[in-house]
């Protein structure tokens, strides 16, 4: 299952975080863990693989411009699927915000949460189809 989903920028600042494991919710631990993960991701070069072990988690990340999209998951999850999930998420954000940038994410955290909520529930993948997710979100926004 997916344990957490992080968006961290090149300065190591967390721009978005969503945890699916409750024991990770302690604020201080969360912040220091995010900082450590950011350091680890930033340290890796392009010719290194983007999947690695971190404590009891596997981490997979993809970098888009200045943002790292990082997923922490357990060994049972398909590594490549996770990378594909990140890709799908980014494509959805990109369509929704029309060329998404870091500021869009910063100022619209609530929306990012809502989009992610359609894709992952309780650490399990619900929906990955870009068009499905987008039409649901649009429909939801229109109806209210």
């Amino acid at each position: 299952m997916v344990n957490f989903f992080l968006l961290i920028n090149k300065q190591g600042q967390t721009r978005f975080s969503r945890y699916y494991t409750k024991n990770l919710m302690k604020a201080e631990e969360r912040v220091s863990m995010e900082a450590e993960i950011a350091r680890k991701c930033l340290k890796r070069s392009d010719n290194q693989c983007s999947i690695f072990d971190y404590n009891q988690y596997k981490l997979a990340y993809r970098r888009y411009a200045s943002l790292f999209f990082i997923i922490g998951f357990d060994d049972k999850e398909n590594h490549f699927s996770i990378l594909e999930l990140v890709q799908a998420f980014v494509e959805i954000l990109n369509t929704y915000f029309e060329n998404v940038c870091e500021l869009d994410i910063m100022y619209n955290i609530e929306k990012i949460h809502i989009i992610l909520e359609e894709m992952i529930v309780n650490g399990c993948i619900v929906e990955t189809n870009k068009n499905h997710v987008l039409s649901l979100i649009m429909d939801m926004n229109n109806k209210t």
């Binding site: 604020a27 969360r30 955290i109």
Partner: peptide, 13 residues
Amino acid sequence: VAKLLYIHMLGYP
């Protein structure tokens, strides 16, 4: 509440 979610993300109570 929206602000609180942001504050929470930054690691504050």
